[in-house]
Design a protein around this nucleic acid. Sequence first.
RNA 1: GCUGUUGUAGCUCAGGGGUAGAGCACUUCCUUGGUAAGGAAGAGGUCGAGAGUUCAAUUCUCUUCAACAGCUCCA
Length: 645
Amino acid sequence: MSVVKISLPDGSVREFPQGVKGSEIAQSISEGLARMALSIEVNGEIWDLSRPITTDASIKIFTWNDKGGKYAFWHSSAHLFAEALEALYPGVKFGIGPPIENGFYYDVDLGDQPFGDDELLAVEKKMIELAKANNPFVRSDVSKKEALEYFRAKGDEYKLELIEGLQDGSITFYKQGNFTDLCRGPHVPATGVIKAIKLLSVAGAYWRGNEKNKMLKRIYGITFPKAKELEEYLHVLEEAKKRDHRKLGKELELFAFSEKVGMGLPLWLPKGTILRERLEQFMRRAQIRSGYDPVVTPHIGSKQLYVTSGHYEKYGKDSFQPITTPDVGEEFLLKPMNCPHHCEIYKTKPRSYKDLPIRLAEFGTVYRYEQSGELHGLTRVRGFTQDDAHIFCRPDQVKEEFIKVIDLVLLVFKSLGFDNYTAQVSLRDPENKQKYIGEDAQWDKAEREIQEAADERGLKTVAVQGEAAFYGPKLDFMVRDALNRSWQLGTIQVDYQLPQRFELEYVGSDNQKHTPVMIHRAPFGSLERFVAVLIEHCAGNFPLWLAPEQFAILPISEKFNEYGKRILNALRDKDIRGLLDDRDEKIGRKIRDSEVKKVPYMFIIGEKEVAENKITVRKHGGSDLGAFTLDEFMSQFGSDFALPS
RNA sequence: GCUGUUGUAGCUCAGGGGUAGAGCACUUCCUUGGUAAGGAAGAGGUCGAGAGUUCAAUUCUCUUCAACAGCUCCA
């Protein structure tokens, strides 16, 4: 009998009979591994443990601790779900059902049947029953013809459509129990490994992600090998909800929405405004240091301005409609972008190559008609403020300027402790070039420059096609929120188009007119979204320099309110923000209330403190730092109250 | 925009065909205190809005608005 050489991850090579299965290899390594094994990587491809290996290969056995193991587990769970659903709803049609980062989903067509929480529970129960049956997942190769026949007989047009797109000879089915599905695999050996099951939610999803197609029901679920792991996962979800900026924003009185004002139009409350203004101060200072010139432009602009920029053609009809003047019928748009205004500032006088780069910065509030279903707390709103700036430079300055902006973005992230961001190079969709303006050569150049700048700063980047702006590629900084949703914060964009459209020029050293290059950039992105992500990042425990209330003075009794007032005024003179809690409450109560409000410092004053002219300092979270005079406290901790340098 | 779920006091939520309830917050009084909720009393709601069914609707039906989850979109 012939043998195959199997290389294991530890570098050792073992011989097995040809056709050996992953499960047998696992068994030969150890009983424990065999029990834990879920799938196997064979020459870089993830396989079922039951699939015979017929050639020499390097392999790795995957368990629950590997991504490859989890994916097989959740992929199999999706099939288990489908089996349970079909058992309860005969005739249901299936779309796709992949594993995802946390669990799996399956898109299904249930016709007009309602499907809510009760139905989820019923299917969940059926799944548990079928898991206990411990049916093996059986892989089989089928011809395209057989595959089409099977699903034609079943009347599942979605699967038929999927099969049409596949190549004959590469089609496999998987069967467990009474359920057969078109599937590439891999799967776990049998349903029995799935012990804990939770169907999480139902949502709509267009077939193949296309708005014009029928909307299917997408059912999300998650499963685990142990009940305890499911409990832990659900607990983590609960904890994440506590960090949600919409919840904390309400509790900490940072911002609010009003139906009367309009959806997606945030109202910044006094405490939220302090937070936001501190961020602005931080950015203003950083920008002045980096050679930016602040400018201010109005909230509306002539429609013609956006026709010129191309924004009107691209977004005009789906946007807030123009405001028309009563007499002459002149049309104005609520400013959706600051860049056209800044282009016009550039044009106010002739520019020399010696003047460049010119960096125009503005905290510009813009209005965009976002789809109603997209509005989400502060992360997606219809009126928001960008920390926007446009750098007008010569072609030879693009890379250097781009790198400087990267540094600015990284300064922001570092100052706020954002360490798990991703840098995304957002490129054109090569299939859909008509979505963009400009010529290929300029796009290629811009895309190259962005990648080079990012590489030069050692940024790890992920390139994503189809994510560019219509006028140019971008470097986007993505951060995840408490619920693991990804948001774009900072963005840097190279633009060869708008300078042409606005006929911007400068006189070069050759005394000829040249077109400058524009870099759009916003390190925060929008203040609204940035604050939202910041709230979730620190769970409302803001760094001292940002905290709306940096301290609370807590007198032991009303007798010490006068002394408290003196301390309050002394601290305010030092530009430190806080309040005096002079309510008729006991100290325990005052401490609790300040703790709940996440006030960083509590200054407790009573008979002893008045006598010694001191304050007793308690930090948020409970640590007692002892008694200080104000001067002692300020010399020791004072610098933390100021903007970070 | 699409699919689904939800909408009761400032907040968190219970209830349910016969014109509403809790805790916290709020107001007043008592209490003058030492590191996460002192005590008592009081006030507060067109049950998201509109229409229909009914003797009677906050409850049932429809429409609409908004929020939430996801999809699509995102200058």
